[in-house]
Computed example of a mutant assay.
Amino acid sequence: MRLIIQIPCLNEADHLPATLAALPRHIAGIDTIEVLVIDDGSNDNTAEIARQWGVQHIVRHRRNRGLAAAFQSGIDRALAAGADIIVNTDADGQYEGGDIADLVQPVLRGEADIVVGDRGVADNVHFGPFKRRLQRAGSAVVRRASGTTITDAVSGFRAISREAAQRITITTEFSYTTDMLIQAGRKRLSITSVPIRTHRTDRPSRLFKSIPRFIMQTGVTITRAYTTNNALRVFVGLGLLLLVIGVLPVARFLWFYVAGDGDGHIQSLILGAALLMMGTLVAVMGILADLIATNRKLLEATLFKLRKLEERLDAGVDSEAKRDIDDRRSAQDAEILPIPSRRGG
């Protein structure tokens, strides 16, 4: 069982050594633990620090592409490196490295596909009152959108099984946390959480520059992810709402028309007709969007099968190469060993 711990980094040369030092070296049930650092366009020596600390895998972006892209790059590299479990953590030391052992246990036991580290937002001493309320409200929205029970939706400390990592592709450009949960909930993956410890971080967030910007970008991410995975419900629901609203001014015009006073209320008829047409068009858009979403599911299923096929081919090539090496060694041994001479009795 191979565990790869991935760490997305942006100018983390000062904090990375302490984060690497806190990572576990041995976990029961895990045969190999490796580290993967994703340097997302840093302008310091983050990648060099990673090399000095013996990090086995390093991915470098030529320019900053954002946390979501760095996370996806890490997942792709970890899968290519043969990871059975992937753990994502931050480089700023917010999460306790020793808790990785607890984080991977539900995956090791086959109880979950994704495990999210729960920071205990409601009473976390490192969060201010406003941040606590904001995190709880955001997690409630994500739970509703994803159909999960996760109480800390934006926690970046999480463990992912190989199969779950193969089935999820991050599409947002801001943060992977909410997009990942909504996709996982839609695909009926098993998601759970475990309590974790956190540490205070003094440096400002590299993900967002202000709370209003964070709220706006997170809201856009949630809306986009939910709409992508529930297109029919969103567009048909909106279309029906417009149809209902459109019926009201039409009914108003008909009321006055029957009463013999329809000439003065033609605006209600025009407004109602416009709303009815808009509602119909939006509902049709929902049907088309659902067809596109269905096509996306087929593409994702094809991609998943392709990844599985690549694994089998790689395993076959490795096995064949190993057999070829063994055959060569046997041939060499046969040449080296002396042939016993026959003596007549």
Rank of each mutant, 00 (worst) to 15 (best):
G286L: 00
V284E: 08
E310G: 08
R328L: 13
K297N: 15
A274P: 02
A315L: 08
T280P: 01
V317F: 10
A273H: 00
L291Y: 11
L298I: 04
G286F: 00
G286K: 02
S319M: 09
G279N: 02
R342M: 09
D327L: 09
S330G: 01
G279C: 02
L298N: 12
D326N: 08
D333F: 06
E311G: 11
S341I: 12
K308P: 02
R329H: 03
E310N: 06
A321S: 09
R329N: 08
I325H: 03
L281Q: 03
I339L: 12
L275W: 02
L313Y: 13
T280Y: 00
M285N: 02
A274Y: 02
L306D: 12
M285I: 11
S330D: 12
L313H: 11
S341M: 14
L298S: 08
A321N: 15
R329I: 08
D333W: 03
T302C: 04
T302Y: 13
T280H: 04
P340K: 08
A321F: 12
E300M: 05
K322R: 12
D324R: 10
Q332M: 14
G316W: 09
A301R: 09
K308C: 13
M285R: 03
N295Y: 06
I339W: 13
L309G: 08
S341H: 09
D324A: 14
V282C: 03
P338S: 04
R329A: 06
G279K: 00
R296P: 03
L291G: 07
A283E: 00
F304P: 01
Q332H: 06
I339N: 06
L313V: 15
L337H: 12
D290M: 03
L291S: 11
G272W: 01
R323T: 11
A334C: 01
E300S: 05
R296S: 06
L309Y: 04
K297T: 07
D290A: 15
R312P: 02
I339H: 15
V282P: 00
